[in-house]
Design a protein around this nucleic acid. Sequence first.
DNA 1: TTGTCGTACTGTATCGATATAAACCAGTTC
DNA 2: GAACTGGTTTATATCGATACAGTACGACAA
Lengths: 334, 334
Amino acid sequence: MVTMQDVARAAGVSPMTVSNVLNGYPHVREDTRDKVLRAVDDLDYRVNVAARNLRAGRTKTIGFAVPEADRPYFGQLGAKIIAHAATRGYHVVIEQTGADRERELHTIAGSRNRMYDGLILSVVGLGTRDRDLLRTNFPMVILGERVFSGPADHIALPNTEGTYAATRHLIERGCRDIAMVKGNDDLSDASVTALRYDGFRRALRDSGLEHDPARDIAIEELTMAGGREGTMRLVDSGVRFDGVVCITDTVALGVIRGLVDAGVSVPGDARVIGFDGIDESEFSVPRLSTIAPDHDEVAARAVDLLLDRIAGGEDWQAQEFVASFRLIERESTV
Amino acid sequence: MVTMQDVARAAGVSPMTVSNVLNGYPHVREDTRDKVLRAVDDLDYRVNVAARNLRAGRTKTIGFAVPEADRPYFGQLGAKIIAHAATRGYHVVIEQTGADRERELHTIAGSRNRMYDGLILSVVGLGTRDRDLLRTNFPMVILGERVFSGPADHIALPNTEGTYAATRHLIERGCRDIAMVKGNDDLSDASVTALRYDGFRRALRDSGLEHDPARDIAIEELTMAGGREGTMRLVDSGVRFDGVVCITDTVALGVIRGLVDAGVSVPGDARVIGFDGIDESEFSVPRLSTIAPDHDEVAARAVDLLLDRIAGGEDWQAQEFVASFRLIERESTV
DNA sequence: TTGTCGTACTGTATCGATATAAACCAGTTC
DNA sequence: GAACTGGTTTATATCGATACAGTACGACAA
């Protein structure tokens, strides 16, 4: 492998000068710079990032841990995080935790490897009981709930407010028997499901509507397949319903599919609203109304917070930030 | 930062022994191992990956360069690549090239950084003219067309065969005036668009059908928005059509949306078929027929080829592999 | 002339883990 | 008792880039 030494020899300068040229150090004579760059080209030299990282004590790489990278929500958020990190000279490694508590713990523990300068962690399986795990001084930004009071920054989504607004929207549109399709998490924990469910319940209460537990549908996985399956159960149960609040857009697309299969017209017989504002929601048939948190804001804020924390060092205090959201009205709730 | 030295001191052994314990070297006495592991825990020691990488001469990280990480196709493929690489102890960094030739070149050039052991490159903007760029001896697997004869492995999709089958399928279903929505690439180059278009043309010819260029719709971006916009143009042009072959599933979902908006019923007035077999195609309304290459096969093969190449060294020959595919018939072409 | 300053460049030590070879220590075997 | 075994542990050199301190040299001031 060709090293900086080789380039230096070829250009007739010291390795340090090569380094200076490559790093844009200003006090290098024009012709020296040219000689070096020519040697770099001739030898097809590449900087050995491992060596640089070792010397510098950082990797310019952050981790992004998600349950499943192939869900549209994480894919779209991940793309934005990658793009934003790139503008700040950072690379992103995506770790799939599989929504499994064990794997999440493992990822946080860093599998005993210090390979990232920091970690953006999309929490799903972890709960209050795991709070101690975050008591490391490793730079970390949690995407999700403020269930931890540990020394980590938080970017929270407007979960409760979001489903509250979604549910009120359905009610304003005339729905009275509203179902919710959600995850099957323990509701006592501050999981995404618990928080969004809470917003749903509150909206019902504030509107003086009865809450019928038979219209709460818990599904295993927050996927389209899960949404469809849950919808089938709802329909088969024979319970009346004229609106469905879905925990995510992906689930909502499955719900719509399920309703169509069951001969329930959307929005005629039942209105449907999702949560996330993924791109697909704008093109589904019917177009999906949704609670859309500002993705760009979330991605940028997460990266910025993390990099500040990495750069900052000692005098630092955990920050919290709740993303703003818009209620986008589309065909599914007309 | 706590180093292996510190752990060694705390455990009363040499750094080398710590290293041996951490790397599972078998000839370490039980009690020594325990001492070391206890010290590791006590000090919350993490291996400095940069140092290990420098010494080892590899990073155990591969790059995956895609045009846009947020398209379902790349997201779903990326997730599989990440998962498969993980089973072989490798991490994946996703680089977004933005489907821009400049950025693709830049990525290949590695931005003068040797930070990956290898690269999986999803080609879009590059064409035959760029073939020389791949003449490095940097391990690389191209996902896309065999437009390069350079020293890189290839995983090709069954592009021509796929659209051929898709088009024949529409014809069998009774379509006679078939449109194709595709990218706006130069057709002389062996781009994805060119190859898929070729399959489309062949199928028409082999079936004795006239090809009307007015039914060729070129769109800027292979997105849902692009698909919808192209469809509007097709409808507005007033040309008769009763079937649409779409270059990707994502585009197809946009096409369906556009047709519904224009009051064209699917599959009643026009049948639609996509390409890729993304998860969403199974849940759209109507469900989308598609050409589904075996994603798992593609991901596994890409990773395996790349890692073999990395491990292999000298005596190696460029391999080529064309993924198999299935035609999945769903509601959109009933 | 001496001294100061600024630019251009270089020699050396260092980041932290690990490959290598060598040392050490029972427990055999001859 | 010497030589030899195989398991266990350690000292040293090394991977490649770069921080730092330092040299060389010319310009300009006192």
